[in-house]
Every structure is written in C-alpha cells, then in structure tokens.
Amino acid sequence: MDHPTGHHHGCCQGGHNGEHSSRRGFLKLATLGAGVTLMAPLTMSRPALAGSVDTLLLSCMDYRLMGHVADYMNARNMQANYDHVILAGASLGALTDKKPAWGEAFWDHVAVAKDLHHIKRVIVMDHRDCGAYKVFLGMDLSPDPAKEAEVHGQYLTRLKAMVKERHPDLEVELLLMGLDGQVEKVAA
C-alpha cells in the first residue's frame, strides 16, 4: 500500500535497514582493514637488524638500472641486507676531481657502514652507457664495448686499490652491468 508521501512503506524500511547493514558492514571491514594494517609491521618480513649487514654497494644513479640493480642483489640473497651508496658514475663519481665532495661522502659512508653495520665487503657496480662518463670525461664509450669495459675497469681498479689501502680488511668486488641487467665481473 502507498504511504501518503508516495513511497511504499515496506520499501522505506528496507532501504534504511539496507543502509544501516551496509554501513555496519563497511565499518566492520574498515576496522578489520585497519587492524591488518596495524599488524602488518609485525607479520611482514623485516630488514635485518642493525649490525648484520656485511656489504656496502656503490652504484650509479641511472634510473634505467635501479630495478636491475635490485634484482641482481636479490638474486644474491641480499634483499634489504646491504647498505647502498649511489653516485653518478659509481666508481668515477667516487674518484672524480670535478666533484670532490662525492668522494668524501663515499669514504664517510664506508667508515660509517664499517662502524655501524660491520661490513666486510664493498661491491662497486658501474654500468655501460653511463652518462657520467660523458659529463665528466667528455667520452661516449658506448659505441666501443671493449674500450668502454677497459675505461670502466681502470676506474673500478683504482677505487678498489684505494679501498684496500684505507681498509685492508674489506673485500672489494668490481662489477659492470649492461643496460639489459647482465653483470660482468671485472678483474683487478
């Protein structure tokens, strides 16, 4: 039967009940969601405790390789278990006279990582087609992969020698990454 307002009486009651029950259901879900969010830090895997990281990684800032760098470190079972210093040019960035503060920052990071996290190794990862080599050295090495590997090898080897001189207890690993994420070890 029609209500004087033109609505069915049963429809109005059902509509209000539906609104209340759906609002109540939403509140229950929202509360449950908040609880899950609050519990997430307790249930998700956490990074290693300070003091247990054994590696400091120096890599370039090139946005094209960030995912590849993380994938490489993850494949070595080091996910969220290394200190990461990023300088344009990686080894070149730590060595260039054009940005002496960068080298100072790198050495400061190595010292802090040793003191705070007791690192045992430094990994230096340069990459091919590096814009820092163009900017700081005026060299586009990418057309000649052999020459590119040779020049990167010179900077990587120089930085390794300096790390070993300042911190003889640290291992140093030298790597050269391609734009496809493939990594070559560089002998020094």
Rank of each mutant, 00 (worst) to 15 (best):
H3M: 12
K147C: 05
R23D: 00
W107V: 10
P145T: 14
L58G: 06
G153L: 03
Y133Q: 10
A146T: 12
C130W: 04
L156D: 02
K134C: 12
L38R: 05
P4Y: 01
L175R: 03
D129T: 13
G6I: 04
N74Y: 10
M61S: 13
L95E: 02
M73A: 04
E184A: 11
G153N: 09
L156E: 03
H117V: 12
V53H: 12
I119L: 12
T96Q: 15
L27C: 01
M1H: 05
V124F: 03
M44G: 10
T157K: 09
Y82S: 09
T37I: 01
T37A: 09
P100I: 15
V112D: 05
T5A: 13
H9E: 13
H9I: 07
G35D: 01
M162S: 06
I123L: 06
F136E: 11
E148I: 08
L27M: 04
F136W: 14
D83S: 14
V53L: 12
A75Y: 09
V172Q: 06
Y63G: 12
E150G: 01
S45N: 08
R121L: 04
M125H: 05
D62E: 08
F106E: 02
I123M: 07
R46M: 12
K99P: 15
V163A: 04
R64E: 04
H8A: 06
P41A: 00
K134V: 14
D83F: 11
W107F: 15
Y155S: 07
A50T: 14
V124I: 11
L29K: 03
M66C: 10
H9R: 01
T157S: 07
V151Q: 02
L56H: 12
V124H: 03
P145Q: 11
M162F: 13
H152R: 09
E19G: 09
I86K: 07
V163D: 00
S59W: 02
H117N: 13
K160S: 08
G14H: 04
Y155H: 14
H127Y: 03
L156T: 09
T96D: 11
N74S: 10
G93A: 15
D2M: 08
